[in-house]
């Protein structure tokens, strides 16, 4: 839901605010380029569908997602239970629908947390330079010195099993990319004339950071933020697959896949594993294609 309305919001805010008209058409131009990218449009369509499913699952699912014994355990998919049932006879379709909540919330919330933390840390490091920058850079490098999944698992174990703690744990492993990107942008933008002018006229540092430097680094920041969503969803899936997930009986895709994997290991049919696996894969594909389209449309200089 929030993803599809993300860009227009930014555009209107931008158009009404600080920029001249030609640059408005630059954003329009980007939107037009985004619409011409077929893969990105299909991806946006899928994400819209996912958003609808998530919202619907808040109010209605074919069966109660946590109700045990809606059918025999390990019932194969049938017209009554489109995705079959898991070991406890819970309706899998309902659980997969509800599972989308965890993925979307973790993806979007992590992207938001990282956006805030990364932008503030990066702006300060790049603008202040000196010892502040050195300290921040050392901290960033220390975080890069350990596999992210281990940090996430340790924090998760330390904080306890809950959705919020998963978001915190994952944010702690992905904030560095954003901070480094913003720091680089901040370092180069602070040398431009308009920043010097602002400084000479006695503007407060916080205003220089957020009203002058930040808007001019917005393109790459938004693009980076969209790529954080799939990384967060993937890390969350790893965590829950390894058993460090949301507390049961709440359903999430990694957890269902993990149950399906044990079912597979005890010789049952693979559908319990396949449905959540397909759901995660399609969602990640959609976010990645959407992010690619966004980058090609709004940040043509950045190449990968």
């Amino acid at each position: 839901m929030a993803t599809t309305t993300y860009m227009p919001e930014v555009v209107t805010e931008y158009a009404g605010g600080t920029v001249a008209r030609e640059q408005v058409s630059l954003w329009r131009d980007g939107l037009r380029r985004l619409r011409r990218n077929k893969l990105a449009v299909v991806a946006m369509g899928f994400l819209a569908f996912l958003a609808v499913v998530t919202v619907v699952s808040l109010f209605w699912t074919p069966y109660p997602p946590n109700a045990i014994g809606t059918c025999q355990g390990y019932t194969f998919p049938s017209p009554k239970h489109l995705m079959g049932c898991d070991d406890l006879g819970r309706d899998l379709l309902s659980r997969v629908m509800v599972g989308s909540q965890v993925s979307l919330v973790v993806g979007l919330a992590t992207a938001f947390v990282v956006l805030v933390v990364g932008v503030v840390v990066g702006l300060v490091a790049g603008y202040m330079r000196g010892w502040v920058d050195t300290v921040i850079s050392v901290i960033i490098n220390i975080f890069y010195g350990v596999p992210p999944l281990l940090i996430a698992i340790s924090l998760y174990v330390l904080l306890g099993a809950s959705l919020v703690n998963i978001i915190i744990a994952i944010s702690a492993t992905v904030w560095m990319d954003m901070a480094r990107l913003v720091r680089g942008q901040s370092l180069s933008i602070r040398e431009r004339e308009f920043v010097e002018a602002a400084r000479a006229s006695g503007t407060k540092t916080s205003k220089i950071l957020f009203a002058h430097i930040f808007p001019n680094a917005l393109g790459p920041i938004i693009v980076q933020a969209t790529f954080i969503i799939p990384i967060a969803i993937l890390t969350a899936a790893f965590l829950t697959f390894l058993g460090f997930g949301v507390p049961p009986p709440q359903a999430d895709w990694g957890g269902i896949a993990s149950e399906g994997f044990s079912a597979l290991a005890s010789g049952f049919d693979p559908y319990i594993l396949l449905f959540p696996a397909i759901a995660i894969s399609l969602t990640l594909l959609a976010f990645n294609f959407f992010g690619d389209g966004l980058r090609d449309a709004f940040d043509p200089r950045q190449k990968r």
Binding site: P270, A277, F289
Partner: peptide, 18 residues
């Protein structure tokens, strides 16, 4: 390439085992 980094490794591993 995009499919490669979109499909989680545990999915590929499970399919391989399957």
């Amino acid at each position: 390439a995009v499919i490669g980094y979109s499909v989680p490794s545990f999915v590929i591993a499970s399919l391989g085992i399957l």
